[in-house]
Design a protein around this nucleic acid. Sequence first.
DNA 1: CTTGACTCCGTACCATGGTACAGACCCGAT
DNA 2: ATCGGGTCTGTACCATGGTACGGAGTCAAG
Lengths: 134, 134
Amino acid sequence: MNDMTIGQLAEAGGVGVETIRYYQRRGLLQVPETPPHQAHTRTVRRYNPNDLKTLQFIRSAQRAGFTLSQIEELLELDASQDRRRAREIAEERLAALDAEISALQKARHSLVKLSSACAEGPAGPCPILTAFDH
Amino acid sequence: MNDMTIGQLAEAGGVGVETIRYYQRRGLLQVPETPPHQAHTRTVRRYNPNDLKTLQFIRSAQRAGFTLSQIEELLELDASQDRRRAREIAEERLAALDAEISALQKARHSLVKLSSACAEGPAGPCPILTAFDH
DNA sequence: CTTGACTCCGTACCATGGTACAGACCCGAT
DNA sequence: ATCGGGTCTGTACCATGGTACGGAGTCAAG
């Protein structure tokens, strides 16, 4: 899959075409130049495996909880080779991630309790409102 | 803190007054009746500890990843005592939560690697774009 | 009985991350 | 040569979860 159209890129990245265009508008993906020898004629833009890598990075970074603005910065850092800042960002997110994970684990615990408290029979009171108390 | 004003409720719940009003508009919190003997005169509404419980539940459930619509349903279920549906919802969220937690743990792992890969020196290439590759 | 803080209600606005057009245009297959 | 599907650009719209504001009313303290 070398030299793709936007539709193929979208397909390969598991996103919609409109999402790619949105990332382009946000500056996360660059818009490939059309061949210069016919600058005034519009033509179909072509995407390469690097674009796909970037797209995949964007999606993974989102899953890691980065916002699109932060991802934008990460992409700039990748180009500018500012290790210090890159590490800073990564560690910030790491700390947040640890907090999020442990919050989710607490929530998980509460849900397990709730679901077993609601286990018997089809009806009757089960302690939904107090499910997360302590 | 019995019989609070909306400001005190907000304070106690760690949210803004506007957020409470928003939850009321969404139907997550009911708007307390004004005393009936002066129905046409507007008066200041009063909130009790039950309202606070509900508010705290809303915030906890959000932290557990429920949307406000789901929380609305949970609150209805708490009233209607439909255990079956309550368990269903809890288990659905539980499954999603497990997926989210493990995704975040994978992301965490990648970030740890990234931050240590960017550890030496202030500049130079570090593998941001490939940080989440496998 | 006025002042200042708070409340009420309606409506408008915001950020985030998309999603959906419309009206051209381009391009490969028939 | 033309037809259908994909592309291009710009702009509009969407859901979620709030946040802000204006103008009026209320209420407790001084």
